[in-house]
Design a binder for these strands. Sequence first.
DNA 1: CAATATACGGAGCGATGTTCCGGTTGGGCA
DNA 2: TGCCCAACCGGAACATCGCTCCGTATATTG
Lengths: 195, 195
Amino acid sequence: MSKVYGGATPSSTHKRADARRNEQALLDAAAAVFVTRGVDAPVRDIAARAGVGMGTIYRHFPTRADLVVAVYRHQVEALAGTAPRLLASMENPTAALGQWMDQFVDFLVTKHGLASALRSDDSGFAALHAYFLDRLVPACASLLKAAVQADDIRRDIDALTLMHAAGNLCIGVETGADTGYDAHRMVGLLISGMR
Amino acid sequence: MSKVYGGATPSSTHKRADARRNEQALLDAAAAVFVTRGVDAPVRDIAARAGVGMGTIYRHFPTRADLVVAVYRHQVEALAGTAPRLLASMENPTAALGQWMDQFVDFLVTKHGLASALRSDDSGFAALHAYFLDRLVPACASLLKAAVQADDIRRDIDALTLMHAAGNLCIGVETGADTGYDAHRMVGLLISGMR
DNA sequence: CAATATACGGAGCGATGTTCCGGTTGGGCA
DNA sequence: TGCCCAACCGGAACATCGCTCCGTATATTG
């Protein structure tokens, strides 16, 4: 059931040289714009920044989600890959889970509007949601399972629910100035409540 | 510092009869549209439903937040008013807090997109955010304070933070079909984690 | 150096938020 | 009652944004 998300890198199948160039330019431009304007920055801005036309951006990334996924793929994969390592290197699975969640929160909080986009019901973001779930839920699940088995974490909460909640808790942090709200702490509280 | 939010009811200061009529029509129309299309339904739809022009809606409710606040004012006030009663009628303040939070969650979950709108950084929703905070944070704070004093709730979390987190946990529930996600349970977990 | 498949660019359409101003009307007042 | 003007109304108009479509340009291949 899990889709294959590989092969979208510019250097993949042999397209025309200009196509590869433009795809890379778009990735760079998007990454830059996402930082300042958030993941739902105007498409035109990204195209302009990359020095390409509207058609080009939609040809390479039919959905906004495709672009976002391409930009953050490496970080997401890295996050997914961290889970087994964390599990192996720590004696306490619950602590490993907590640490992984912290990394997850870090990731979301540093991407303007990403958390919001993930929960958005905008059809254009559906694939984004799917990708994140496909990659991160299994990673989270392995940690959660270990924590449940070895420790005193309640077993009636699945990884999907946990990630949904944690993701939600990260919303509104990127935005605006310092309100005393700390997503890390809230997620920590949530996990504490799961014992 | 807390603003006065009264006097926006159609029957308030003596405007012209048609103005009152239109304001009421807009409130009714908005309430109806919010149920089906959510709080960020197209302004035109609301105006059309009320049988008025674009100008009229913006004259009566300059900001979308004004309209939303007007529509939900009664329920918000009721929710705020529940806090003292709950505190008086229950022996356990922590249970009272939990019950009040449940009502808060109920309120948010039954309003499509309200939770999302509350966390939105859209400038048009800033006043909405402010109103909810002004009304509900003190109510929550009274319960929280009692729970802290009488029970074993940690004291390093203020009402604002708690409501922010709880509000976030309600996001994405209104949307779409039944994903096993249950905002009530998540908020319950969060409160459990606060001991 | 053609010929062709491939890719590009941006005008254009529809939806939406918001403003602005000429026309309309309620209701106080003579 | 009838007049008159301040208050109010309506919706055209402008701006922004997502997305599509097609005539044009060019990389590649033989």
